[in-house]
Design a binder for these strands. Sequence first.
RNA 1: GCGGUCAUCGUCUAGCGGCUAAGACAUCGGUUUGUGGUACCGAGAAUCUGGGUUCGAUUCCCAGUGACCGCCCCA
Length: 480
Amino acid sequence: MPKAKKKSVKKTVKKAANKSAKSAATKKAIKTSKVRAGAKKSGEIGGEILLQPPRGMRDLLPGEQSYWSQIRRVLSRMALEYGFGRIDTPAVEYANLFIRSIGSGTDIVDKEMYLFSSRGGGDKLALRPEFTASIARAYLQHGMNVLAKPVKLFSTGPVYRYDRPQEGRYREHFQANFDIFGEQDPILDAQLIQLAHRVMASLGIKNIQFQVNSIGCPKCRKEYQDLLVAYFESKKQKLCQNCKKRLETNPLRILDCKEDKCIQVASAAPQSIDRLCPECRVHFKNLLEYLDELDLPYMINPKLVRGLNYYTKTVFEIWSGDENERKYSLGGGGRYDYLIEELGGEHTPAVGFALGMDRVVQEMKRVHARTHVEPKPQVFLAQLGDLAKKKSLKTFAELQKNGILTAESFGRGSLKSQLRVADKLGVQITLIIGQKEALDGTVIVKDMVSGTQETVGMDKLVLSVKKILKNNVIVSRNGE
RNA sequence: GCGGUCAUCGUCUAGCGGCUAAGACAUCGGUUUGUGGUACCGAGAAUCUGGGUUCGAUUCCCAGUGACCGCCCCA
């Protein structure tokens, strides 16, 4: 049988010789189960329980939450300012929704989507790899086309992509998503980029840059694509294996290939912005004028194409940091004027973008951005003895009701250990209820800063605590 | 999907083909009776999983898993 078992028994016996046999054995058993709690292979139903999340997924622990709440606060404020209504859609959709909207031939659909069947086996489902398809679905389903245009929708939540995890790249990651339906004017595109810029600025992330491009509408895109294919066909021998395939499936992506030889070929390729139809050309020109007017940091990247098929006209990405530190984009988006039609609605131009929240957090850490820190309790409630313990819960609730954030450690017995905790938490006041106080209906109010304490009646407790807190604030203000 | 680096208490690290795997931080308890910072004492806590080589593996080899990096792709 498994070596581990033999070993643990051996060790247990050794330990047992020294110490209390029973407890050592028990602990060892628990210890072993920490990582393995069964005998079968991982992933099997009824198999071992791995005490870790699946690959590419992670826990966001309390210590990290100040970044996340800061982002959420900024996002919801911006959403409000720019008139976006919050929408939440399921993380699971029918797979066809994504296949139709993102398009087969894209990496996201072809190799990164989590696909599964429902229990009945009939429904082909998928974990969402992005938001826009779901939002468009909801837009249609709930008849939002009758709302005053533009319709602006905002969402945050997890998305799932089955790719190789690295830093800043997770199989489950969180996106904030903004979509605007019903307007084709590029001023909306510009406004969206402005919004993204302001979100970053509010988070303390300076030094960002937008890359923008226009890939045209279906008409000029088709013409351009034919031209591009013809060009690449003529240079086919010089392309990498992948790009030879892309010639059939997604020729635009060749422009974005990182292989040296492909870069060389692509550098001389016709550019989409030179081949735009008059309408798209004007659209792009106007967008750039708006961006100039807003003084937003952007550069035109003619090779920017993006991996989703539904985009038309404007595409853009957000990058941060200095040139050599740039590893990945913080967000991206673009216009998708035909997606709603593709899904069966009336012609509805639209534009949207997604922000990678995990990457934004990483960036915030890198630039030591300010975070949102939740208020910490300034009061600790200590109890001593059975009667006091009984009263403590009620007192605790009473303090909270009066807006006094209070910490406690009711499970502890000794006053000393409770005071240690109080000190560690850095509270300003410790309230002590002992046997005597419980009988008298009083509380000891101890000022942790000065070390002085006084006994007050239970009815005066709130008042007394508030007074000390107020004084201490003044003292600390003067101290600054 | 391909390639590279790595894997020891909760965390950061040490170590060696062979005695009980060491330390720091953190945690918990104590230093007499109902009072916190420091100090002192004590406790619990780890060699990722599986296989191989070996008398003996935490150490060497292989595979798996995971993290990180590069490619691919993307947020």
